[in-house]
């Protein structure tokens, strides 16, 4: 055997060994591949799905929820209503910081149980200051505390939304009624939107959400509270599966202090319009130019 062919043989041997080692190193993927379905892989963007295709997708999501979570649910594709622009206002004078809103969000939106996830964070603020630096979300005592006031923060559904601008693949956008939504089946999980949001309103599914079947809210929508896949970003949708059919957001219904007001900004007789026109209103971080649809106000 001459030197050249021995060298070639050794190279081939090395390449074979390398390929085998490579296969071994990515062996964990054999667990992952069966969880992928070709329909899901090839699924088009929300805005490109025809009505029939959407039906197929919705039934598939329902079937998957039954298979993976053991719960029978209804997933609908609920579109915006004509002549509606949603707005939300929160009364800082009356909020007591009980965090019932965050809990209601947790249940309504089928959040992961172990992380106690919610789209709402309630900040305990120090009276005499509007500085977030002096706030705390980790408070663990009876509320309301002396010298404190409370400021729940959730997605502000900004008209100039940095998250929508950031997304490289249009997986998140602003709907006709002002709600910013995510196509959970289109998001690639780069989390640029999470970095872009000035309100810490976005959440990433670091693990597959776990919820006992009996705790799953079966009233679901494709763009809102259906159980999210692992590896994608999610956010508050003003409970669009409720609000687009005339109901109120879960956080509002749960508020014992009546601090929350939700409605159609285009309706001159709505309570939200009255508040914006007649009370002392502000938006959080007005200086970052996001033009929120979430307003804070004080009693006159």
């Amino acid at each position: 055997m001459d030197d050249t062919s021995r060298r070639t043989a050794m190279k081939l041997g090395g390449a074979t060994l390398g390929a085998a080692a490579f296969a071994r190193s990515i062996a964990p993927l054999t667990e992952w591949v069966p969880t992928l379905s070709s329909e899901e892989f090839l699924q088009k963007h929300y805005k490109e799905l025809s009505r029939e295709e959407m039906e197929t997708v919705l039934r598939r999501v329902e079937a998957m929820t039954l298979e993976e979570y053991g719960a029978e649910v209804t997933v609908q594709d609920i579109r915006p209503m004509d002549g509606v622009q949603f707005g939300y206002a929160l009364n800082l004078s009356t909020c007591v910081g009980c965090r019932k809103c965050a809990e209601a969000c947790h249940n309504e939106n089928n959040h992961d149980r172990s992380t106690n996830q919610s789209y709402i964070r309630v900040l305990e603020m120090t009276k005499g200051s509007v500085s977030l630096d002096l706030s705390s979300v980790e408070y663990d005592h009876a509320v309301p505390a002396e010298d404190k006031y409370y400021m729940p923060v959730q997605c502000h559904q900004c008209d100039n939304a940095p998250c929508v601008t950031a997304c490289p693949i249009e997986a998140t956008w602003k709907e006709a009624d002002g709600i910013v939504v995510v196509d959970y089946d289109w998001c690639i999980g780069c989390r640029y939107c999470e970095a872009a949001c000035p309100y810490h309103a976005r959440r990433f599914n670091f693990t597959k959400p776990e919820i006992p079947a009996e705790e799953i809210n079966p009233d679901q929508a494709y763009l809102s509270n259906r159980i999210r896949p692992v590896g994608v970003v999610e956010k508050c949708t003003f409970c669009l599966h409720r609000t687009r059919v005339g109901r109120l957001p879960a956080c509002l219904e749960a508020c014992p202090a009546g601090s929350r007001v939700f409605g159609n900004l285009l309706d001159p007789k709505s309570e939200i319009r009255w508040i914006i026109e007649n009370t002392r209103v502000f938006v959080l971080k007005e200086d970052v130019g996001t033009q929120p649809r979430f307003f804070y106000f004080f009693d006159s």
Partner: peptide, 11 residues
């Protein structure tokens, strides 16, 4: 860094 490598074709 992508959460969903299977969907990277969206890019």
């Amino acid at each position: 860094d992508l959460g969903r490598i299977d969907r990277s074709w969206h890019l």
